[in-house]
């Protein structure tokens, strides 16, 4: 019988009139990698900061490794590794010195060289931290979180701002942590990242849990559904009864479980009415689309927040 690494029940956090977290509950078992997935402003960072002890929840109960994080117990902090979304290190110190300094605060630190090796900073270990690239800086953040030999790691948007190859490298690194037996809670707004790294995903939006499960459980209810999209010339309107709805870009979409029958009905109508179904596509929705549907957003959003920062 093991105690969960993280257990939160109905937590909320409000700042005056602004509600950052409305109602979030989930549990993370020891050794599990859980991704908190959601768009910016969903309450991911606030939730993780409550777990880290940086903020106090307005309501609900929180347990981290059996501790109340708001009390900021030193015993608890010795077993946590935290990568904040945005924090720097002393640019005058080298990565080796930074890691050694952080290590000296813990009762049971990992050897400095081993940590540098693990995050791949050995070759730049004696360079001033201020001269590291963004990706190297982020790996140093991870090194500082790992040097205390934590049981539980918090990674707040560990790959935001990375180029695709740096993201792949970071993914490899984080999934290696899983093999070290660490419990990991990470936040992300990328579905593919959550799917690649996490054993389980909690989708939150507007401060509430929308869905929870393994990647395949999340996709499960949608896998037997197929999307048919097409365009119509000018003023032509498709038939009712097939569940057709128009998208923001003017094209039409049908979601159906009975692909063959629906397609048959649609094409018969088109032949009868003598209209062309332009750009006719029949396919399963991608994970990204399922996620975006879940959080109530449409894919062609040019000012998508995930692209910023």
């Amino acid at each position: 019988m093991t105690v969960p690494a993280i257990e939160i029940q109905h937590i909320s956090k409000t700042y005056g009139e602004v509600t950052a977290v409305a109602d979030v509950s989930f549990t993370v078992q020891q050794g599990e990698v859980l991704a908190l997935l959601g768009p910016n402003g969903a309450g991911k960072t606030t939730t993780i900061e409550i777990l880290e002890g940086h903020r106090k929840a307005t309501g609900g109960t929180v347990r981290v490794l059996g501790f109340d994080p708001a009390k900021r117990d030193r015993q608890m902090r010795a077993r946590l590794g935290i990568v904040l979304q945005d924090s720097r290190t002393d640019p005058e110190l080298t990565p080796r010195e930074c890691v050694a300094m952080f290590g000296s605060w813990y009762p049971d630190p990992r050897p400095v060289d081993e940590v540098l090796e693990l995050v791949g900073l050995t070759s730049v270990a004696d360079r001033r931290s201020g001269r590291l690239s963004g990706g190297q800086q982020r790996r140093l953040d991870l090194a500082l979180a790992l040097v205390g030999n934590p049981d539980l790691l918090f990674l707040d948007e560990p790959t935001t701002g990375f180029d695709p190859s740096a993201r792949r490298q970071a993914w490899q690194l984080i999934s290696d942590l899983g093999t070290l037996g660490k419990t990991v809670l990470l936040t992300t707004h990328y579905m593919d990242e959550a799917e690649f790294l996490a054993d389980r995903i909690v989708v939150i939006s507007d401060g509430r849990v929308l869905a929870e499960g393994t990647p395949s459980q999340l996709v499960g209810p949608h896998t037997d559904r197929v999307r048919i999209t097409f365009r119509l010339d000018g003023a032509v309107v498709p038939p009712t009864g097939l569940g057709v709805h128009q998208l923001a870009d003017g094209s039409w979409r049908i979601e159906t479980r009975e692909t063959t029958a629906t397609l048959h009905d649609l094409t018969r109508w088109a032949l009868d009415a003598d209209v062309e179904l332009e750009d006719l596509i029949v396919r399963r929705p991608s994970l990204e689309e399922i996620y975006l549907d879940l959080v109530g957003s449409t894919p062609p959003e040019p000012a998508s927040e995930g692209a910023k920062r």
Partner: peptide, 8 residues
């Protein structure tokens, strides 16, 4: 802020 998250 980062130091606050450590046992120091």
């Amino acid at each position: 802020r980062r130091v606050q998250g450590t046992p120091l």
